[in-house]
Design a protein around this nucleic acid. Structure first.
Length: 734
DNA sequence: TCTAACCAGATTTTT
DNA sequence: TCTGGTTAGA
């Protein structure tokens, strides 16, 4: 058989997978083994060699960004052929589309909106309040987690109620009913509903299921280890009856159990499809053997897994650097200096480096260090654009226009900017709406038609003014105007610009954000509001970051999934941070899975590195605003010392850990300077000195003080204004 | 009804 | 340290 050019450059295992025939296939692959590459080639192969029409293929990726990249690569592989009709995207995006099309067979209309976590919490609070449940005792977050877990397991409120086995579950169950009522009344679905409703749709309407089964001849899934039960049911349903299912994953990289991902789907797959072919990809093309050995040593401690042997053709490589920092600032400085040094030595560009941490809060000292030094960086994912107040407000307007039943959005913005509709009037509106069995939004619109309502003249006037605006915007939407002019109408009619731009620096920032939202709305010139809103709800800005800047990336271990960098720094390797305190607590309560997942998280981090890996932990770390001593992560003890260079481990044994803890307990009471290990040197900078920084240019020193082993200097720059800078990044002039 | 001040509380990860 | 929620006062 003549070989397909699509198989060129692949190893035998990869070829085997790409060119596999029909039927169920499970590809179990280690990190850096070309999983995504195999999946991409497989899609191209189906089209080119097996003659499958693109619209008969569904390929599910973990992020929207991965989907975009895959689309581009496949098209390139097929010689620029346009692959329209290919169903490529995340589970959520694909489900959102199906639910829109099949709305008449669901409890929702096609104008439904998607509730994100913030909206969900608002709705949960509402539900709990209705039920007189004390949200101090049962936090909305914990209730939401309970409901979300139920939905991921495909448990409807009724089924869940039958399984209640604890007081907490009882509370969750009651809130679940009320919460679902609120969602339905608002014509809104949360993330979990998108999946669950789609599966329910298929279960309840065999003809609908059959339609999609006929359409999708091949179903491919990436990151299979991070699917939850609902997602598994979905692909199971879609792939039937031919079961041309191609699932790619690595159970050792399962890091989303907290949100319902269930690595047991791998086992389910093998049980449900006994004839499935399992193909292993074990060769690693990414990392040096040293890095792989460290990763293997860390992950091997986990029980209940299929051992994999990872090998690479890349050679041994350099040893892994371990650094014990004094505190998080010292750690940040050390990382920054290392990146600058690697750059000066001409070994790696800043853009080839990534700094990874467990929690978003850890980015702060890093950002500060970079800012002080005037070195640019790329912060990935942290404060999410769509999470900003002004953006959420504007989107709430758009959602309300699109779907007047969305009372969470209505209540969010009915008095933003303030327009005389306070808690009292709002309460009256709610009560009246309920009495005439309309959602508050629709009741509001009915007011314009002269509906009889028990409001004071003053309240009524305020409500009517707002209703008038809403009706006006809806008319724009109904006339088919694209998102941007509608958005502009909202901005103009509400006087949002004046409201936000209050003369403060933050005000200008907020306005800038509004302008960015306008920019993204401008991309939807030929789409309607529904499409724009869906996109906004399902595409995180993690997906849209700019890769083209030559600056180090700062990101959490979770968002590092699927990425690779020549140089990786893993910081904050301490007990309580990685593994996170929550998992230690869970472990103490007898749940070993939590710790195993933390370990996998570290495994993912280590295996992102191609050439150089730097590990660090701090001797003390600031938590909740004050600084406390910390212990090196237990995971560090699993890395063979022969692979490491740098600091000896302070907590090499359990006994040592205990004595370390005792020692640091009393050190905690000493002034900081006692614990600092660097002897102070005379200050280099005095007020009035002229100095220069490569990034900010020339300036004059305002003030300077010692700060551990470095100097913190306030400088008035001639052009860049006043900055606080690490003395290491200043040179005296003259 | 609105604003500002205060206080308490919480801090994992994200489609 | 920050955020959010509550309360008091205008």
């Amino acid at each position: 058989m003549p070989e397909s050019p699509l198989l060129e450059g692949l190893n035998p295992q990869q070829r085997d997978a790409v060119s596999a025939g029909t039927g169920p296939h499970l590809i179990l692959a280690g990190p850096g083994s070309g999983k995504t590459r195999v999946l991409t080639h497989r899609v191209a192969y189906l089209v080119q060699e097996m003659g499958v029409a693109p619209y008969r293929i569904m390929a599910v990726t973990f992020t929207n960004k991965a989907a975009r990249e895959m689309q581009q690569r496949v098209e390139r592989m097929l010689g620029g052929q346009e692959l329209s009709g290919l169903s490529l995207g995340t589970f959520h995006a694909l489900c959102a589309r199906i639910l829109r099309v099949e709305a008449e067979n669901t409890p929702y209309t096609r104008d439904y909106v998607i509730f994100d976590t913030r909206d969900q919490l608002t709705a949960i609070k509402q539900a709990a309040t209705q039920l007189n449940i004390d949200i101090k005792r049962f936090t909305p977050r914990s209730l939401l987690d309970g409901i979300s877990a139920a939905k991921n397991e495909m448990l409807t409120p009724e089924v869940f109620a039958d399984r209640v086995d604890s007081y907490f579950a009882e509370i969750v169950s009651r809130v679940y009913f009320a919460y679902q009522e609120i969602l339905l009344g608002s014509n809104a679905m949360d993330f979990d509903d998108l999946l669950m409703q789609t599966v329910l749709l298929f279960q309840q309407y065999a003809d609908v299921a059959a339609k999609y089964q006929r359409r999708y001849e091949h179903v491919l899934v990436d990151e299979f280890q991070d699917t939850n039960y609902a997602q598994y049911k979905l692909i199971h349903a879609l792939a039937a009856p031919q079961n041309n299912l191609f699932a790619v994953g690595d159970p050792d990289q399962s890091i989303y159990a907290f949100r319902g991902a269930d690595y047991r789907n791998v086992l389910r797959f093998q049980k449900d499809f006994p004839d499935a072919r399992v193909i292993l990809l074990e060769q690693n093309y990414r990392s040096t053997q040293t890095i792989l050995d460290a990763a293997t040593a860390v992950i091997n401690v986990n029980t209940n897994r299929v051992p994999k042997r990872l090998f690479t053709g890349r050679g041994k490589g350099e040893r892994i650097a371990l650094y014990e920092a004094y505190d998080e600032d010292d750690e940040a400085r050390h990382i920054l200096n290392t990146i600058l040094r690697l750059n000066e030595e001409g070994r790696y560009n800043p853009g080839e480096c990534a700094i990874m941490y467990r929690t978003n809060a850890q980015s702060r000292p890093l950002e500060e260090a970079f800012r002080r030094a005037g070195v640019p960086y790329r912060l990935i994912g942290a404060t999410r654009f769509y999470d900003r107040r002004e953006i959420r407000d504007l989107l709430a307007y758009l959602r309300l226009i699109h779907n007047p039943d969305d009372s969470v959005s209505l209540e969010r913005i009915i008095n933003v900017p303030t327009r005389g509709i306070g808690e009292r009037t709002l309460g009256e509106l709610r009560a009246w709406a309920e009495s005439i069995r309309l959602s508050p939004g629709r009741a509001l619109l009915a007011l314009l038609e002269g509906a009889d309502a028990p409001f004071s003249p003053r309240s009524r006037r305020a409500l009517e003014v707002f209703a008038g605006l809403l009706a006006h915007w809806q008319a724009l939407a109904a006339a088919g105007r694209p998102p941007l002019p509608i958005l502009d109408a909202v901005i103009d009619d509400t006087g949002l610009a004046a409201y936000l731009r209050d003369g403060s620096r933050e005000g200008e920032d907020r306005w800038e954000n509004v302008l960015s939202l306008r920019e993204s709305a401008a991309d939807y010139e030929h789409a309607d509001l529904a499409e724009f809103l869906t996109q906004v709800a399902l595409v995180s800005d993690v997906d849209v970051r700019d890769d083209n800047v030559d600056a180090p990336a700062l990101l959490t271990l979770h968002s590092a999934k699927g990425l690779e960098f020549p140089v990786v720094f893993l910081c904050g390797l301490e007990e309580g941070t990685l593994p996170h305190l929550r998992s230690l607590e869970a472990d103490a309560e007898g749940d070993p899975d939590a710790l195993a997942e933390e370990r996998r998280l570290l495994y993912v981090g280590i295996t992102r590195a191609k050439d150089r890996l730097y590990l660090s932990y701090a001797f003390r770390r600031t938590r909740f605003g004050d600084s406390e001593p910390s212990l090196p992560s237990r995971f560090l003890q699993d890395v063979p010392p022969a692979l490491l260079e740098g600091a000896p481990l302070a907590g090499a044994s359990r006994a040592a850990q205990d004595s370390f803890a005792r020692m640091t307990a009393w050190m905690d009471d000493l002034p900081r300077s006692h614990a600092a290990r660097n002897t102070p040197s005379p200050p280099r900078f005095q007020p009035g000195m002229r100095v220069i920084n490569p990034h900010f240019g020339e300036g004059v020193v305002i003030a300077a003080r010692r700060y551990h082993d470095a100097e913190e200097v306030d400088v008035q720059f001639d052009r860049a204004g006043r900055k606080r800078i690490d003395g290491n990044f200043l040179e005296p002039l003259g």
